[in-house]
Design a protein around this nucleic acid. Structure first.
Length: 779
DNA sequence: GCCTTATGTATACCA
DNA sequence: ACTGGTATACATAAGGCG
């Protein structure tokens, strides 16, 4: 019997006392299915020393069995650092003892090394049969005698062979659920040791937001009621915002305390902590959108609502602060809080719905299941992708090992030409590092000791790389670049606004993310294919490329105003720019594209900080305080206004008077408290800091008052009139009243520096902004 | 002991 | 736990002065 299914999640579990892979999926007729593949035996490789007789080794392994779980050994051809090598694939009965088994074999046989013995059973399965989640498969087998209701599926299937992929087709209709919990405490933030969950809000695809509320001191009933509702809806994807750090651990601890059964997985189990610190629900995808928001660098303060606004999906802004939850819950304002929680569930749902295509595409490309892929750091996404590709290419997969890092020289940033410029074009190399790695075959397996006709010597750093055959990085990067081009091309042919278009864009974005991270991966100490020479050479070739481009531009008479890593900002002359693009292609064999066009642009004296006026009249601000998350909104919006006056109106004098008027009597403007809050990330525990800093001091104060802040959280503070150092003047934002605000600080250390950063360019200094009498006459 | 300057720590940004 | 390059603020140590 044959079965077609779309793979949502997979895990390793026993089946009839044997190790098996459990594949959770959805069929074409929209049924949920559990596919059990108990026919996989894991294995590792042994690389003999040169001169060792491989047939003899094979015979010895099978006869001596260095470890009881050795099943048999087979001879295979593999590649190791560009060399063809014969290896032994040792099959192993017991996946839990793979590493030990490999160690014993290496010791007893005196071979060079073992490979792939540290890879988990399910990963081995994935690379062996090219199993990527979020894709269609067909498989042979029979209907199982297991009751499907036991696993919240419609069918349980036992395979006779292994799944084979079906060429690209879209995902089935998945059941989506979002949820968020609420707990309150009179003394600060709630603690699962003390405070029960008092509300769960959720939203499913079609329908309104729902809640379960509880008055009781025990949330036993609430947890079980939620479990029932959850299982009844039987979601495929569960969205949360902060679920991995708050909702799930809280629910688990509460369930443990009150002896409630938290049943949310398809196995009726709870959420379980997994590989990347995230939580997994068996047979479902638990997607924490806070992880997704981590990739959105433009969203400075990561709330669901900010993420929703950024994505352009619907979300209502909450009005009740976390510190007011308790009073609302026990008081007459509870309905407002309940509404806010419902709105939160809706916002989470909308963000999740929007982020789903990207999540599934990134999961499919990287081969990390959808519940892991967002939780995994970029390096591990690349790692997982490379594992799959390495196996396809017959490369032995090295183990990850943390080496001591030797830093190397990176990119070039040009000195900006300070001031205002009209009609400026940005020329960007497309995927510069990947393109260079492909063009010059930069890879650990093409690195050679000696130069020669068949090798390239990298300028500046002097490493040599063979031109042929193509190395590992060249092959994978070429594939990625080609697949991104294909997605791009197809997207261009597909009508905008259609689901297909969105999927193709998501595919393109996922491919881009993996492509662009590969250079960094090569230079990451934790990488399997770490090579400082590779990373260093890519960087050196990048510098060489940008330097040559500057010369080409100059020879054409193009005026270069600025540049950073892979871009050049030039005075825009259409004919010259087109010529330049052709020259780069001809002389360097690389693609450079016309990027942003600025009607007018302002460069400050600092690198990496500029602001430009776009064709449509919008400002594009880069690196400046106006877009930094660690400046008050007050300073940010004033700098933004100053930039507008300068770039749109061309009027620094007006900008100057604007700032002066604010500075003169800031207090009288009655700016809202929220615009005075300065947010900074706590990057370690408060006691680990070497020097006193305002946000650390505030974090300590908050912890003392029952609002502990954990690593990675943003701490919001306002500077008060209290005497002393800044860190003594800073107070938690929610505790400060407008009367306590040190407006002098905001004038001297926020508004004036932010405004002067722009106005310095026109000879307007900080003093001029502070002392109007010495400046020009105001209008 | 007080003031100025140099250095170190911390954060967020650009590509 | 992808890389290096850069700006900036504030705390603190070091240096200079009387």
């Amino acid at each position: 019997m044959k079965l077609d299914f779309w793979l949502l999640d997979l895990n390793h579990d026993a089946h009839e006392g044997k190790s098996a892979i459990w594949l959770w999926g959805v069929t074409r007729d929209n049924k949920r299915v559990l596919v059990i593949d108990a026919n996989f035996q894991t294995s590792f490789y042994l690389l003999p020393k040169k001169g060792q007789d491989i047939d003899q080794l094979k015979e010895r392994i099978e006869r001596e069995k260095p470890h009881p779980s050795v099943e048999r050994a087979d001879i295979e051809q593999k590649k190791r650092l560009g060399e063809d090598r014969q290896v032994l694939k040792v099959s192993c009965k017991d996946p839990d003892n793979l590493e030990k088994c490999a160690r014993d074999c290496v010791k007893q046989l005196g071979v060079e090394a073992s490979f792939e013995d540290k890879l988990r059973y399910s990963i081995k399965y994935q690379i062996e049969f090219e199993i990527r989640p979020c894709q269609w498969y067909k498989v042979e087998g029979t209907e199982s005698s297991i009751d499907p209701r036991k696993y919240h599926v419609d069918r349980v299937f036992e395979t006779s062979g292994h799944p084979t992929s079906i060429p690209r087709e879209n995902a089935p209709k998945l059941r989506l659920l979002s949820f968020s919990i609420l707990s309150v405490s009179p003394t600060g933030s709630p603690s699962p040791i003390r405070d029960p969950v008092c509300l769960v809000a959720w939203k499913k695809k079609d329908g309104q937001a729902n809640t379960i509320q509880s008055e009781k001191t025990s949330d036993n009933e609430l947890i079980e009621e939620f479990s029932q509702a959850h299982q009844k809806f039987d979601p495929d994807v569960v969205f949360s915002f902060g679920g991995n750090t708050f909702d799930w651990p809280y629910l688990i601890k509460r369930a443990d305390r009150t002896k409630a059964k938290l049943s949310v997985g398809r196995d009726d189990g709870p959420a379980r902590q997994s590989l990347y610190g995230h939580f997994s629900l068996t047979g479902r995808a638990n997607v924490d959108l806070q992880d997704f928001s981590g990739d959105l660098y433009d969203v400075k303060i990561k709330t669901v609502e900010n993420v929703a606004r950024f994505l352009g999906v619907e979300a209502s802004t909450p009005t009740i602060d976390e510190t007011e939850y308790y009073d609302h819950w026990i008081g007459k304002d509870r309905p407002a809080l309940v509404e806010q929680m419902k709105a939160r569930a809706i916002s989470i749902f909308n963000v999740g719905d929007d982020a789903l295509d990207y999540t599934l595409q990134l999961s499919n490309l990287s081969a990390l299941p959808p519940d892991q892929v967002l939780a995994a750091a970029v390096g591990f996404r690349v790692d997982s992708y490379l594992l799959m590709e390495a196996r396809k290419l017959g490369e032995l997969i090295p183990a990850r090992s943390e080496l001591n890092i030797i830093p190397y020289k990176g990119a070039i940033v040009l000195e900006p030409s300070v001031g205002l410029h009209d009609n400026v074009a940005v020329l960007d190399f497309s995927a510069m590092y990947p393109s260079l790695m492909v063009k010059y075959n930069i890879s650990p397996d093409t690195l050679v000791d000696e130069g020669g006709d068949d090798a390239l010597e990298v300028p500046e750093v002097g490493h040599h790389f063979r031109k042929n055959p193509p190395g590992f990085y060249k092959i994978v990067l070429s594939q990625l670049i080609a697949s991104r081009q294909a997605a791009k091309k197809e997207a261009a042919k597909t009508p905008r606004g259609t689901p297909e278009h969105k999927i193709l864009k998501a595919r393109e974005k996922a491919t881009k993310v993996i492509t662009n991270a590969t250079y960094g991966y090569a230079g990451w100490a934790g990488s399997r294919w770490y090579s400082r020479e590779v990373a260093e050479s890519a960087a050196a070739l990048g510098r060489d490329t940008i330097n040559k481009s500057i010369d080409i531009a100059k020879n054409l008479g193009l005026h270069v105003l600025y540049g950073d890593t892979d871009s050049l900002f030039v005075e825009y002359e259409e004919k010259l720019v087109n010529q330049f693009i052709k020259e780069i292609d001809k002389n360097l064999g690389l693609e450079i594209n016309l990027g942003q066009l600025y009607k007018r642009i302002l460069f400050t004296e600092a690198k990496k900080k500029y602001a430009g006026l776009l064709e449509d009249g919008e400002l594009d601000i880069v690196g400046m305080e106006a877009i930094r998350g660690d400046w008050s909104n007050l300073a940010r919006s004033i700098q933004n206004e100053v930039l507008k006056l300068v770039l749109q109106g061309g009027n620094p004098t007006e900008a100057k008077s604007y700032v002066q008027s604010l500075v003169k009597d800031l207090e009288s403007f009655k700016v809202p408290k929220s615009s005075l809050v300065i947010w900074k990330t706590l990057t370690k525990r408060p006691d680990e800091y070497e020097v006193n800093a305002p946000h650390v001091e505030v974090a300590r104060k908050m912890a003392k008052e029952g609002w502990p802040v954990t690593v990675g959280d943003k701490v919001g503070f306002i500077v008060t009139k209290k005497p002393g150092k800044l860190y003594q003047k800073a107070e938690p934002h929610f505790k400060v009243s407008l009367g306590q605000v040190d407006y002098d600080y905001y004038v001297h250390n926020q508004i004036v520096p932010a405004a002067a950063r722009v106005l310095e360019v026109f000879g307007i200094h900080e003093e001029d902004l502070l002392e109007p009498s010495r400046g020009q006459v105001n209008l």
